[in-house]
Amino acid sequence: MTPFTTLTGVAAPMPLVNIDTDMIIPKQFLKTIARTGLGKNLFDEMRYNLDGTEIADFVLNQPAYRNAELIIAGDNFGCGSSREHAPWALLDFGIRCVIATSFADIFYNNCFKNGILPIVMPQEVVDVLMADAKRGENARQTVDLVAQTVTTSDGQTFPFEVDAHRKHCLLNGLDDIGLTLEKVSAIDSFETKNAVSRPWA
């Protein structure tokens, strides 16, 4: 996993609530056995007409946002299915950070596993970031994971919360499985105990 420390980039404003995983990556693109290559179909149905041509209005099709690295959105971003294809598609497109007032649980989790930082901010802050993002490609925002701050293009800085374990893994690009296997003796002894207390399980 690519570590995440700081990021300065264009933020795409998506002032919608309940942006669900079917919008982020429709199911016809889940039939892949790879993790890469999904970026071209990110937000497919909002981004392309049926004949494959681009829908000019859609934010990521506008010249200012074609290289966006952040998304600013409304409540409950990533609701819906558990598909990790959603963060894979975001990442493949180049999005490394999503800032919203709230996230769906599984999506939030999946982001961290893929080097994407999801940030929860209160509505007032999202409003400021959204307004800043709407100013286009010169309005580059900065996310500093070490300091846990987001800074707008005109220098307003807002702090955010992140779980210490997740922050550590993201900063260092650590793989969870490796970390867990260091605790293999705890798993062994749990299984031994379990074989007695809940043998049917």
Binding site: S82, R83, K113, N114, T180
Partner: peptide, 13 residues
């Protein structure tokens, strides 16, 4: 529900 990275994590651990 879990994501694919977690599927791998559960398979392995």
């Amino acid at each position: 529900g879990i994501g694919t990275s977690e599927v791998e994590h559960v398979l392995a651990t």
